[in-house]
Simulated scan of single mutants.
Amino acid sequence: MDRGKRPGKFLGERHNKIYMDLKDIIREHALPFLPAKSLFRFQGVCRDWKYQISTPFFAHKQSLGFRAISGLFCQTLGDPPLFVSTDLKSCGVPDPSLKFLPVPFDIKSSSNGLLCCQGCTEDKAFYICNPVTQQWTKLPKPNADHGPDPAVVLVFEPSLLNFVADYKLICAFPSADFDDATEFEIYSSKEGSWKISGEICFACRMPMPRSGVHVNGVVYWRAKHGGILAFDLTKDRSRFLQSYFGGSGGLGMMDGKLCTAHASGCSIKVHVLANVHSNTMQMNSNSRMWEEKERILLDNQVFGGDALDPLAVVFANSDVLLIQNGKKFYAYDFKSKETKLLHGVSEHDAKCVAYVNSFVCI
């Protein structure tokens, strides 16, 4: 009778096979959520970790698991880029100047570990690259003339079932047939070709280069004279959204919605797009296109007691705001409510794009 109640030797051995060692748990379930620079360092822990991190399957898991913004690529026109890291110990790239690309270039857009660069040579070709793995590919020539400084947005959303990076490059460019109109051309890596959309936006508001973001199948650009230009990739339709915030506001995504962050002095207000159809609602409706999501008062002492230059929000999402003050950059963490100075400086007129430290393979 008592024999069946006692845990025997067989039961103990069975439990030893069920439970993993801590080192195995970390290797299998923690490493894929770390940035690429940290993983390069962890390859020296042991042979198992080095093998694990170097496999294509792990690179795929890491591109799915790590999505945090790791810093900014900043570039003055015609000069090599600089990388401003949010954490020097964990986030970085082997060569911030991207010398592995075959021609001089300007960085145009970024998405989940991939960069879009445009060559400064005569053909103005587009290149998609990963600064971590130094892999790159040259895109075919577009069908339309996009102008000297095109407003392009790179869209890459890692997929669990897709080991090859499928991405799109969306370009909004001045129409050659209609004055003050904007047309759109899309490159699909799956199709390997460009396609000009039949949509034409006559809103007379040209999009600003390097201002675009992608949110839930819609690409948004800040317009040069105020407002936001939107292009729906699924419906192949565009529209112009009114925005009553200053021109220095940065676009981003917060809680799955388009957001815009505008700085005034040491105060930052973040608004989210709540209802794009608010102008069609009945009179006296409480529905508004934009809703205030956050109001942040930054500590002036962080800027040395006197912010001589106007603050500009260069990136915003649910976790962090990246802020430029002259040649310096700062990060505001929504969880800790703290603002820290980032290591790295840039020129006043440098153009910046946010970057995710990913192992994604092209």
Rank of each mutant, 00 (worst) to 15 (best):
E13L: 10
A30P: 02
P32C: 03
F33H: 14
K37L: 01
Q43N: 03
K50E: 07
T55M: 07
Q62C: 05
G65L: 11
L82H: 10
F83I: 00
F83D: 06
F83W: 04
V84H: 08
P94R: 08
D106W: 02
N112E: 13
L115D: 09
C117P: 05
Q118P: 08
F126T: 03
Y127E: 06
T137Y: 06
P148Y: 10
F156V: 04
F156D: 05
L160Y: 12
N162M: 13
K168I: 01
C171R: 00
E183P: 00
I186T: 15
Y187Q: 03
S188A: 04
S188I: 01
G192M: 13
R205T: 04
P207C: 08
M208H: 08
P209M: 07
P209W: 12
K224Q: 14
I228Q: 03
F231K: 08
F231V: 05
S243F: 06
M254Y: 09
D255F: 05
S267I: 02
N275W: 05
V276C: 12
N279A: 11
L298E: 10
F303L: 01
G304N: 12
P310E: 10
A316M: 03
N317V: 02
I323T: 01
Q324L: 05
Y332L: 04
F334K: 11
F334Q: 08
K337F: 09
E338R: 15
Y355L: 01
I362L: 15
